[in-house]
Design a protein around this nucleic acid. Structure first.
Lengths: 384, 384
DNA sequence: TTGTACGCGTTATCAG
DNA sequence: CTGATAACGCGTACAA
């Protein structure tokens, strides 16, 4: 009973070409030799009808979709946007398509997308979890047989591979850089409390400071999501500190927070970097675009995406699944160069961060007496 | 013959619950009454196995997927990132999932994604075309029966609905604003030549200038993709003009180009807005984040996304397709509030642009003698 | 109220 | 080299 669906099927092609459906299938799939004449007739019918194989029927028959799910918290954050771009390129080079899901940092949406990806029976999943638990991913893996690779944010207790970066090297470089510029009072805009990866990043900052004999003051530490608003809030608070009691430099746990911070302190009359040095995190193209260009602890976004994709692809070559055939082997579609069959076990990878110095950091105004210049004579402020 | 796929199916659930397949189906779909006891057993089995219905089998059976394809040139461009976000929210509110495809401005990738979306038999398509032709979309529509709505960029000859914005109001406001600040020599960084929407945007700028009695100089007009690099190239050229011969203000056809322009001219020693006023286009969150905050011709991104989605949904209610049922009617999944069955014909919509004044525009240095101050004495440069 | 059987579009297998 | 056929998982008409 036709349900009103009227898409072109292999039957239509076969009828038009005057051949059987299996001949059409063989022409398109290249699974067996077909005479030149029939092949031509089939291709012409395909062309005229604009036929493309039904992925659902294919998926059902093959138990394989050639699709990788990519679940991220927020594509409009350039870090994830860039990550998505890199993954898309890597995956499509290997013949896989990417189903991009954007949870918008909402737990409900994230679970809903995980369900969708399971329903779609994707072959594998690359995930930057915002609130997903180990149990969610385990259920997913168990029920679908799909492979899962976590990226960027670690997931408590999840035993699958994780690909991300190690904040410590970059944090050390950043602190070293600031200390060399004469900074001693260094503030932190950290990520959300209680989130594993955020805590690790924060701990790396603290450790880097302590290694230099500095202890991070609680009064100069602000926490929140990795958003513009978090930075703006921190900036507003910071600007209200008395000049002698506020940090001369701030390290932010994200680029967006750094942008927010800069905007807020400049609105409050401070200048960056003259009155306050700012270090960001991530290093998307926007770090270089900002005024002033942002000094950042850079994550190797491109490599994270590449390594994660390669890790997943390697897992997909393992027993359960096979390489996806291209949907159709047609003139213009390009061959999928299959990667060398590496057979090593997939492991977690932590790539190093590093500091990229731009112009949002500079020397402390007066190294020896850091509180001079703006203090004094401002005691009476507030009565006007 | 099992092909190695081992995902959980409705059979597994039925077996575990000790009922028939159809009972499971009825429980999950709510298509017929089931006794409380069996329902409970089924739900428990679903829970334990982590079962989610196979979307391929469903799609095959129903001729409907509940999925809307969204094809954009570049999600890492915040304009499209924001657009995608809005659409995702609107669509999911109506019970549809969004399959987000990022062509990265590559023609081959764009066609490949169009094929993928056709293979996936999406119910509808929202598309910002970068190089797709009318014929591509017509083939798509004809072969799949899916509805297509174009966004942002118009497509030559495409007779389906288009939702975007009208550049003229914003351009008029921008020129008015600049003229009021004393600018007479106004440059343009326009979009790619020969692309319909880009030409329209450019023509709106030209017309707005002419209405004010200004004629855009060819020497101050630069064309290219809407990218950072295009702006940077234009900025580098502009900075090489002799001070008296270069524009005092520039209108850019995109935000990214404005960023590039600002970076390049500042590197060349000019300051924005003191030496050069800059007007951008689009108005994503980054316009406000930049130093200086960017004066822009703002597109109503959110409304474009909402209107486009609504237009598509209205078309999907028409004869061919029906409302998608939720994949499973489970406790935590939330109901899909179906939109009121509007039955009007879907039409194209052009929403107005408007100017948002920030700090990248300011008065011409010396209104009466705009070429003074930097000229003279630089004749001998180049011999050093 | 529950179970059985069919078909959606594909591809793999088998027979010609 | 080509054509007929079964099966993938699901929803539903129909029989019990």
């Amino acid at each position: 009973m036709r349900q009103g669906l009227q898409s072109v099927s292999v039957r239509d092609v076969a009828r038009r070409a005057g051949v059987s459906i299996s001949t059409v299938s063989r022409v398109l799939g290249g699974s067996a030799p077909v005479s030149a004449e029939l092949r031509a007739r089939v291709m012409q019918a395909v062309e005229e009808l604009g036929y493309r194989p039904n992925a659902h029927a294919r998926g059902l028959r093959l138990g394989r979709t050639g699709i990788i799910g990519l679940l991220v918290p927020d594509v409009s954050n350039p870090f994830f946007g860039e990550l998505a771009r890199v993954i898309e390129v890597s995956a499509s080079r290997a013949g896989y398509n990417v189903l991009l899901c954007n949870s918008q940092n909402e737990a409900a949406r994230e679970r809903q997308y995980l369900d969708l990806l399971q329903s779609q029976r994707v072959d594998g999943l690359l995930v930057v979890a915002s609130s997903l638990q180990r149990s969610d991913l385990e259920r997913f893996g168990r029920a679908t047989g799909a492979r899962v690779v976590a990226m960027d944010r670690k997931i408590e207790g999840f035993e699958g591979p994780w690909v991300g970066s190690d904040p410590l090297p970059g944090c050390r470089e950043a602190v070293e850089h600031l200390v060399a510029l004469g900074h001693r009072r260094i503030g932190i805009v950290r990520g959300p409390v209680g989130v594993l990866a955020s805590e690790e990043r924060y701990q790396a900052m603290v450790r880097a400071l302590e290694e230099r004999g500095l202890s991070p003051s609680r009064a100069w530490t602000w926490a929140g999501e990795y958003t513009f608003e978090t930075g703006a809030r921190a900036g507003a608070r910071l600007a209200r500190c008395r000049p002698g009691e506020r940090p001369t430099a701030v390290i932010c746990g994200s680029e967006l927070a750094a942008f927010g911070l800069i905007q807020a302190v400049e609105e409050a009359g401070l200048r960056v970097p003259d009155d306050l040095s700012v270090v960001g995190y991530d290093n998307t193209p926007f770090s270089a675009v900002c005024r002033p260009p942002l000094t950042v602890i850079a994550q190797p976004i491109e490599r994270i995406g590449q390594v994660a994709t390669r890790t997943l692809l390697r897992l997909l070559q393992a027993p359960l699944r096979r390489q996806p055939e291209p949907l159709m082997r047609m003139p213009g579609m390009g061959e999928a160069p299959r990667p060398a069959p590496g057979e090593r076990r997939a492991r977690s990878v932590a790539l190093p961060t590093r500091l990229v110095v731009r112009q949002s950091t500079t020397a402390v105004p007066s190294p020896d007496a850091p509180t001079r210049g703006r203090r004094g004579g401002s005691d009476g402020v507030g009565h006007a």
